[in-house]
Design a protein around this nucleic acid. Structure first.
Lengths: 339, 339
DNA sequence: CTGTTAGCGCTTTCAT
DNA sequence: ATGAAAGCGCTAACAG
């Protein structure tokens, strides 16, 4: 039951069938004004009979808003960001907004293209999850449309940045290791261009300093947040023969790679080497052994980003909750043994 | 440099600035007709000066196509489907189409809602990744818009189904174990409502039969494709005290859970128990030990789905490549030892 | 309360 | 080759 032929039913057809004017139908659809009950019912029946759904594009054109928000992510298939995307989707859905996901693939130019695409689609705002675009360009975009962005410290009337205290979390992760008696602790850092990664590294440094432990630069390797780089980094670290007994890895994915490298060398976790990761991906609960890590509530982060965007769009204030980061102790870390 | 104030630049402004009519600009934009070079240049300059981007919604309204395709997935954060989404995104992007992702959360009614939402947005087609909707409803939708769907065997002028031979792959996975000398092989199956899962189970059964091995129903547990259910299933299987030495798990996520359950019991992999999974998630390369599994090329699958959709939309024939499934032998399986 | 009338920004005949 | 004009489906004043 879908009207004639194949063309989607239009508001006008509904109006005709219900014997009212198009505006009345529109009013009922949007609750823009009171309408006599008899007409309302007629319209509602017509809508049901014809299985009518308003054309969102037409609505968008008419009211100048697309009911969609762009989401720029680096890699739509990254386990961490996916959780966040889910949060965004859920948040937006309840307000009738649809997310438009685009991937920047860690390339600045690609991100600019994405922005352009989103602008062409007239999204009502854009959420940038850890972008590579520089702050200045971002602020320019913010002049045209609401922006919420993570891992950046930007402010303005049309911008909200969502931040977690990565430095503190890096500090606490390292402290966890120190409290277990470890004194030679290596670190696998994330990409230098990544602010979160830098802050985690800073936290690591501060923890060592505050506990009177030396910071040995040879014990700091750099990865790209993917598993393979964690594996490489451990091999490189091992080659220094510096006899570290614990490892703080800047994200769980690299920790998986690190763990495999250790497995290959016959170094046991946690008996011979303690590992703490960062993110608490869903699968970190199922590694062998389950990974001690810093929980970053990705889903909540997405939800918060979505809510913040909705707040921006509707001109309502929305108090951004702070993102709580928390060390989750599982089985990949233990008290240092031996000398 | 963006025209006056904050409102996006329109085609009309471009036309005015270039001293031509709107239609001319449109023609240049779409290559619909030849235009004198001088005008073309003027228009191109105006576009650049004003930083103009056509309003996709307006284009959509005018030409009756939204340049977007809906993608119904069960869980936008599932590691397997994400890879596929990436493939879809890449495929669609090159034709200027944008994917609109919606999650059905394994609920039939939710999926119907999603469909409705997509219809409202006038998507030019929809890709259903392993949906729960029944075939009949699906065929009804197909009457209105192009449909490509995985894990289903539907046919029609407006539908293409993309299938992999899960039965055969399940068969081969089990054979791999048999060839290693295992005779008591347990299976952790996926949800009964899932066609792929059922076929993998069928393949398992056939392999045992063809090798003259008994099929013991007590050695078949059922999970829900998530890690936790794999863990539970192994515990349950172990309680039978049936002394199986190998395990074929219907997807990698459950295999991770299974592997942890084994770790907890002190059962070594692969020395005491061989495990083969299914999917070959990116992280399966990094489990300890790296997981032997059946590779399902999720990214390619997405790409194929996207290409098929493009074919449908443009009315071109597109030969659907068969999805190759392949056993990837890594380190979680080994020759059976002992008696 | 409700119908009429303009658009929203673009495409596409139809003339010229 | 190019401009004028008529929509695409909906919303939002503006009059009643």
């Amino acid at each position: 039951m879908d009207g004639r032929g194949n063309a989607p039913v239009t508001l006008e057809e509904v109006a005709r069938r219900a014997g009212v004017s198009p505006s009345t139908v529109s009013r009922i659809l949007n609750g823009t004004a009171r309408v006599r009950d008899s007409k309302r019912q007629a319209v509602e029946r017509a809508i049901a009979d014809l299985n009518y759904r308003p054309n969102v594009m037409a609505q968008g054109l008419a009211r100048g808003s697309s009911m969609s928000v762009g989401v720029i992510t680096q890699d739509i298939a990254s386990p961490f960001f996916n959780e966040a995307l889910k949060g965004i989707e859920d948040s937006l859905a309840k307000a009738g907004y649809a997310p438009l996901f685009v991937s920047g693939h860690w390339k600045k130019e690609k991100e600019v293209e994405c922005m352009s695409l989103l602008v062409a689609r007239r999204v009502d705002g854009v959420i940038v999850l850890t972008g590579m675009i520089d702050d200045a360009s971002l602020m320019e975009y913010a002049a045209r449309l609401p922006l919420v962005i993570t891992g950046r410290n930007l402010h303005g009337p049309n911008v909200v940045s969502i931040q977690a205290n990565n430095e503190q979390a890096g500090y606490e992760a390292t402290c966890h290791l120190i409290e277990l008696g470890h004194t030679r602790i290596a670190h696998i850092a994330g990409p230098e261009a990544n602010v979160d990664a830098q802050q985690r590294l800073e936290g690591y440094r501060r923890a060592l300093r505050e506990h009177g432990l030396p910071v040995d630069e040879r014990l700091i390797a750099t990865g790209d947040f993917h598993e393979s780089s964690g594996l490489l980094a451990v091999n490189q670290l091992l080659e220094t023969r510096l006899n570290f007994t614990a490892l703080f890895v800047a994200n769980d994915q690299m920790a998986y790679g690190a763990r495999l490298a250790l497995y290959r060398k016959g170094i046991r976790v946690p008996e011979d080497m303690s590992i703490i990761g960062f993110d608490d991906l869903p699968s970190s609960l199922y590694t062998t052994p389950p990974l001690t890590t810093v929980r970053q509530p990705a889903y909540d982060l997405g939800k918060i980003a979505g809510d913040a965007m909705l707040g921006l769009i509707h001109g309502q204030d929305y108090a951004i909750p702070t993102i709580p980061l928390q060390v989750i102790v599982r089985e990949s870390t233990m008290r240092r043994r031996g000398p």
